[in-house]
């Protein structure tokens, strides 16, 4: 179990001599970049607790030709600075990487004010925005260099807590590309993003033990969605379950339904936060409340098979 957001931050710092970029920090401890200025004082500006200023200034820094890396909690990026991201970063299509941490129920004890459960729904509606969420620490490390090479507004979503490792070293993060990471058969397809991906893999294993053989499609990029991969999975399996640590409104489940209803309609069951706010307390209990644990994914697949 490793904390992806911190490993991602370390990787970005490691790449700081290879890539020229400017770091803008809010006063949070989110991915370790709050220490960037100690090593690179000329390439770092601190904004304190002022996210509107942070993101509008990111627009100015990028406008002047810099690659900008901004980090803060996902709730503040997506909501406190929502308009600054939309109008001043996405509209002029500027080269700003937004590292947004503490997304989803793994924020746990901090409670609903700090649990970003709608961020992807909000930001997915902005033209020019790309949204990625690595599913484990290996994917997070692999993403770092891709994100620095990327040109345009990029929103990177991380949970707060540690998550299990599911990928092998050497994993390549291809922005915009879905990957079948478990291929046991065509009884159903599970589409997962971020921290939920390992639960989808566990569910696939449990189902296999019961003679139900599914595929798991890892979506590392919510926008632009790899529509071809989603449609292909629907064609092969005819039944889809989506899993995300985010409200079922507007995120992965919605994006998959939009794609399939237009191109290849099949039954879809969306798992995620059930249109409610997070609670303060153990994330696993919050997953239970929202039917997002492994047994719930298993049950959802069986429901579709009935």
């Amino acid at each position: 179990m490793e904390i992806s957001r911190l490993e991602f931050g370390k990787e970005i710092i490691k790449l700081a001599d290879k890539y020229d970029f400017t770091v803008l920090n809010a006063d949070t401890k989110c991915c370790g970049l709050e220490n960037f200025g100690k090593k690179y004082p000329d390439r770092c500006f601190n904004f304190g607790i002022a996210e509107q200023n942070l993101f509008a200034a990111a627009s100015g820094v990028a406008n002047a030709g810099e690659k900008v890396v901004v980090s803060t909690f996902a709730v503040f990026a997506s909501m406190r600075a929502c308009e600054q991201i939309r109008t001043f970063i996405c509209y002029p299509n500027l080269n700003v990487m937004i590292i947004a941490t503490h997304a989803g129920l793994l924020t746990g004890e901090d409670g609903a004010t700090h649990i970003a459960s709608e961020d992807m729904a909000i930001l997915r509606a902005f033209p020019n925005m790309t949204i990625v969420e690595p599913s484990d620490v290996i994917a997070a490390r692999a993403l770092a260099e891709e994100a620095l090479k990327f040109n345009g507004p990029l929103y990177i979503r991380f949970p707060k807590a540690a998550t299990p490792v599911i990928h092998d070293e050497g994993y390549k993060f291809e922005i915009g590309k879905g990957k079948i990471i478990c291929d046991r058969g065509n009884d159903a397809g599970i589409i997962a993003i971020g921290a939920m991906t390992y639960k989808a893999l566990q569910a696939a294993e449990t189902l296999a033990n019961e003679g139900i053989n599914v595929k798991v499609l890892e979506i590392n990029t919510l926008k632009p969605l790899d529509k071809a991969a989603v449609i292909d999975l629907a064609k092969k399996t005819g039944k889809i379950v989506t899993v995300e640590d985010h409200t079922i409104i507007g995120g992965l489940g919605s994006a998959v339904c939009e794609t399939l209803s237009e191109s290849y309609p099949v039954p879809v069951k969306r798992l995620g936060i059930q249109d409610c706010f997070g609670e303060s307390g153990d994330p696993q209990k919050q997953y239970d409340k929202n039917h997002m644990n492994t047994q719930h994914i298993v049950a959802a697949v069986k429901d579709l098979l009935d």
Partner: peptide, 9 residues
Amino acid sequence: SVGMGMAMA
């Protein structure tokens, strides 16, 4: 803020 960002850059 935008102008300030430019000046920072």
